[in-house]
Design a protein around this nucleic acid. Sequence first.
DNA 1: GAGAACAAACCGTCTGGTCGGTACAGAAAG
DNA 2: CTTTCTGTACCGACCAGACGGTTTGTTCTC
Lengths: 190, 190
Amino acid sequence: MTNRSLITKQKLLDAATDIIMEHGVHHLTLDEVAKTAGVSKGGLLYHYPSKEALLTAIVERLQTEQNDLYESLQADGNGPVEAFVRLFDETKLHPERSAIHIDAEKMIAFLTLFAVDQEYAERWKHDLDTFFAQFQQTSDPVETMIIRYALEGMMLSEHFNVGVAPPALKQDIIARLIERAQNIDSGKTD
Amino acid sequence: MTNRSLITKQKLLDAATDIIMEHGVHHLTLDEVAKTAGVSKGGLLYHYPSKEALLTAIVERLQTEQNDLYESLQADGNGPVEAFVRLFDETKLHPERSAIHIDAEKMIAFLTLFAVDQEYAERWKHDLDTFFAQFQQTSDPVETMIIRYALEGMMLSEHFNVGVAPPALKQDIIARLIERAQNIDSGKTD
DNA sequence: GAGAACAAACCGTCTGGTCGGTACAGAAAG
DNA sequence: CTTTCTGTACCGACCAGACGGTTTGTTCTC
């Protein structure tokens, strides 16, 4: 795996992610990905021998990026629940770390792939299950799950631009979620 | 529109919804819908002259079903926010009203269609925006939005069966959401 | 029997994937 | 130093199947 090869692969994954985000999976064709990445179709299939391999690579990159960010947020002193909340507002908090930043929109790409084919969901189900299992071990599992669900619903709404909250309200929502997350992390049962 | 025709149309919409729910949009082909509904492809296209017409009909049915249920919940004495929460737990609350019941899973079909093609989202964006606008007019817009987002995130999780809460925990979550919804509807600012 | 409701063969396009070939960088050979 | 060889990276024409939609014909209902 030379450096050149690695760059091309990144370009392809970026292109594919962009297409999903901007136009929806329906437009995610091999020709379109290759064109967007500035690579020929043959070049694409040289690196990712099938569409499924490409999709797998997308999700795997999202997975590791998110995990890295989550761990760095915890290393910064955030509790597990608060770190999760800040995952969704990372852009504004640490713009300098944008290289490893996976924003809420990218996670949508994840969910979108799931929606297209249920079999996809099965493949990463275990990883996600173990990740979310910790949220049932906090000082207030009910509130923790509400926070988690709220964040996921929020990014859903934002992505499809349906019934979105005005920026000011959104800030208040995040603030309240962070406040509650801190309470949970510090063991207060409210 | 004879009675026979109406039954066939319902069968087709049911089949299409089922396919989306169980296998994902990728498997939603005209042949598959026709086969599942026990109708020929020609029969399908007689009623819905294009795939887009079929998809439109699906979403429109979901829209009206949900609106009907929401209004009947409000007529039962639930406040606007509480009614929205109960929308997601309707099966257990009013099993006898299952005919007009639109459960969380069906709403996923909605979102799934959006995921496939962003252009789809535009078509119903206005309707949804006006529906959700009322949630910013409650006694506690921040909490109202959190409740709404939480419910949407919850059905997302349930549908993809990813990191789902055990039944007992889920009950507690719904209970707490209803409690808060009642507070909001009754004007308590917490 | 007339129109509505449906069946089934058929067609054109789109798209995932194949395949033979090219460009080029470096190693090996002379 | 020049030539030859080799493997990586990439190109683009082409193919086969899938899928949306058409057309033509048949059956059911009134």
